[in-house]
């Protein structure tokens, strides 16, 4: 019967999806395997291989990972806070106010979507150097704090808020700032969450610009720390490198596994214009 054919087709599809899924997960599983087993098992797979956290202990002792972790944490928090403030104000201005040159300015802002700060790293390095901020955590964040992407997303979200709500708030005597704080920001909550998750993932993982701008343990984020640690010339054991790799990606990975739906939805949300 035809219905049975459909059933077979679906089984094939399901198996295909599972296999592709397994293939996609393989490298991550492999990293965890290698990190939790002694070095001699990183290339030979045995179910009876003893589990160990020795690799983590040694990675921990070779390089100041707690400090790197702290730096990344401060960096991500700093960027997010600054982005929320700057982008909210700008998005509010673009969404609700009419002023001279608005469209031109907005188009200029959007240019940053295409030409990100890391593309201009030579000149931005010069700027940061002139400001005397080389090798500091704020220097890593500064070029990203005003984000065209954030302004764009929040402006879209602010524009969908019905005019009646704003007018009702005006009738009740709220000021422009009051309306922003009491009406726009709460109603755009899901956009803030989406943008926040995308931004945190981006800056947790960002590498090239931090690599250029930092030169000491005091400011290096995890990614740069890992790169220096894992460089082939450092001569460190592969198992220990994977342990360090796992440490670097674990916080975000755990957050992702816990809030999987939220993550996927956020990335979706950020892509729909």
């Amino acid at each position: 019967m035809k219905l049975r054919e459909i059933g077979i087709g679906k089984t094939v599809e399901t198996l295909g999806a599972w296999m592709l899924g397994a293939l996609w997960l393989l490298p991550v599983v492999f990293a965890f395997w290698s990190a939790f087993h002694p070095a001699e098992y990183s290339t030979s797979f045995s179910l009876f291989a003893p589990l160990t956290i020795d690799n983590f202990v040694r990675a921990w002792s070779y390089a100041p990972f707690p400090r790197y972790l702290l730096n990344t944490f401060i960096l991500v928090t700093l960027i997010l806070a600054a982005q929320f403030i700057l982008c909210t104000l700008a998005a509010y201005g673009f969404a609700r106010f009419e002023f001279f040159g608005k469209n031109v300015v907005f188009a200029l802002v959007l240019l940053q979507l295409m030409i990100m700060p890391e593309v201009l790293l030579v000149e931005n390095y010069r700027t940061i150097s002139n400001l005397g901020l080389l090798d500091t955590i704020p220097a890593i964040g500064l070029p990203y704090m005003a984000s065209a992407f954030g302004i764009f997303l929040l402006r879209q979200s602010f524009k969908t808020i019905p005019k009646e709500l704003v007018e009702a708030a005006q009738v009740e005597g709220l000021s422009a700032v009051g309306i922003l704080w009491r009406v726009y920001v709460p109603l755009a909550r899901s956009t803030y969450i989406a943008y926040g998750l995308v931004s945190v993932s981006y800056h947790w993982n960002n590498f090239l610009w931090p690599l250029v701008i930092t030169s000491s343990v005091n400011s290096r984020p995890l990614t740069v720390g890992l790169a220096i640690f894992g460089a082939p010339e450092s001569g460190v054991d592969w198992s220990i490198i994977t342990a360090a790799t796992v440490m670097t990606m674990a916080p975000l990975l755990v957050a992702f596994i816990l809030f999987q739906r939220q993550f996927v939805q956020s990335f979706m949300h950020s892509g729909i214009k």
Binding site: F207, T223, L226, L253, F256, I257, Q260, F267
Partner: peptide, 13 residues
């Protein structure tokens, strides 16, 4: 989830 996992990993890792 497994399709999306590489997206949240740092390129360096």
């Amino acid at each position: 989830m497994s399709f999306f996992t590489p997206t949240v990993l740092p390129m360096i890792a």
